[in-house]
Simulated scan of single mutants.
Amino acid sequence: MLYEDRYLARRVNVWRDIFPKGLEEKLSGCRVDDSICCDYGPGQLVPPAREANVLRLPFEDFQQRTISGRHVTTRLGRFYPQGMLRDILGVFPSTTTPFRIVEMDDHGFVADCNHPLARFPLTLEARVLRLEDKSGETDGRLSHWVEEFCNWGPGMQAHLPDTATDFVDKEFFDRIDTAADASFYADPRIIGHVDSQASANLQAIYSRSLQPGMRVLDLMSSVESHLPLEMDIVVTGLGLNGVEMSKNPRLSRYVVHDLNTDATTLLQPSGYEAVVCSLSFEYLTHPVAVLNNVHDLLVPGGVLLVGLSNRWFPTKVISGWVDLHEFERVGYVLDCMQRAGFTCKEAVSMRNDWRPPWDDHFVETRGVSDPVYVVRAEKAA
């Protein structure tokens, strides 16, 4: 399983910033479009794993909280802010550094407070996108680039060795709006659900797994498929609003169907080389059943691509999705894919990209594009 995270480093200052070992030297003399690569063993790029950071605690040392109206409970494999742990030296209620529950029994749990990447070998590749002369001072500000792109998420999508994460509780699939989805989606929304740069990033990642001539199913489709317009593929859309899909230039045909009412797609089995589900997985109330049907639709060796971001309709998203960290959501999708019989191959993320300056949300987002996450799995050949 390969995990790839792309992070746009803005305003890199080679004179002031802090770089990981070996990177600054390799960057010296690089021109635009040059790339360099550094390999690191476990614990060389981020702090190494230490047994002292693995704590066995009673359940009363887990401080209960409520998030989005849901009571947070200890669950095997899940990550939580360290501020939820009681009486830990150097940890305060506001500490958001993550820890993971790696064991549980009747008496308590084991909290691994090591960095989520501490036990993984890592490869760091840097590509120069633009060079500029320094126009002025930045009042002593510097960037610690390992912290910028390694902290607060990467590594949290990986499963524990030989242990499934306990994602789902009895309220996981609850939603604020319990009415049929057909009613909510009856009025067409002719808008994109991420900014145009995020859509282009989804297209770029999807394109790595698509070939000309492929038959593609766009699952939970809408007005955009986030698929490359220039690629010669035949795309069928399945969604809840026919008007939206009729405006989608990428679709050759479309079917109106509610997967939360009937997890089967009503399409002919074994007809598609690829299935894509963009920015909608968080609405599924029976995701494994849907993916079981998708498995049947794909030819042997066919690919499943699920794209995610951090925006959704709040009344229709499943409650458990909101509880999860963005990178943990990737782990949840991986878990659903594996339960449906898929072989998971890679997870790719793109973060901190530039949002187009003409975008309506440019100012409030400080020019940062919506993050995208793509999980790729395959049906056995």
Rank of each mutant, 00 (worst) to 15 (best):
L2N: 03
Y3L: 11
R6G: 00
L8W: 09
L8K: 14
N13S: 10
E24M: 13
E25A: 15
K26G: 03
R31V: 03
D34G: 00
I36W: 05
D39K: 15
Y40W: 05
G41M: 12
L45R: 11
P47K: 11
N53P: 10
L57Q: 12
L57P: 08
P58I: 02
F59S: 07
F62N: 02
Q64F: 04
T66G: 03
G69Y: 12
R70I: 03
Y80F: 15
P81Y: 05
L85T: 11
L89T: 02
G90A: 08
V91N: 10
T96L: 13
R100V: 00
P116A: 07
A118V: 09
A118L: 03
A118K: 09
F120M: 04
V128P: 08
L129K: 13
G136Q: 05
D139R: 15
S143R: 09
E147I: 15
F149R: 08
W152F: 12
Q157I: 06
Q157C: 11
H159I: 01
L160W: 03
D162Y: 10
D166K: 12
D166W: 04
E171G: 10
D174G: 03
R175L: 12
D177G: 12
A180H: 06
S183T: 13
D187E: 15
P188H: 05
D195F: 02
D195V: 04
S199G: 07
S199V: 01
N201I: 00
I205G: 07
Y206N: 03
Q211V: 01
Q211A: 09
R215L: 03
L219G: 12
S222D: 08
S225T: 12
S225E: 09
P228R: 14
L229C: 02
I233A: 11
V235Q: 04
L238F: 04
G239Y: 12
L240W: 08
G242P: 06
M245E: 08
N248R: 03
N248L: 10
R253E: 12
V255L: 03
D258A: 02
D262M: 00
D262W: 01
A263V: 11
P269H: 05
S270I: 08
Y272Q: 02
C277H: 04
C277K: 01
V290P: 13
L291D: 13
N292S: 09
N292K: 14
N293K: 09
L298N: 05
L298G: 06
P300F: 11
G301E: 04
V303K: 03
L305D: 02
L305R: 09
L308T: 06
S309V: 11
P314W: 03
T315G: 04
K316H: 11
G320A: 04
G320E: 02
H325P: 00
E326C: 07
V330D: 05
V330R: 03
V333C: 12
D335T: 09
C336P: 00
Q338I: 00
A340Y: 01
E346R: 15
A347K: 00
D353C: 11
D353N: 10
W354M: 12
P357T: 12
H361A: 15
H361N: 14
V363N: 07
R366M: 07
G367D: 02
V368G: 00
V368P: 00
S369W: 00
S369D: 01
A377T: 07
K379Y: 10
A380H: 06
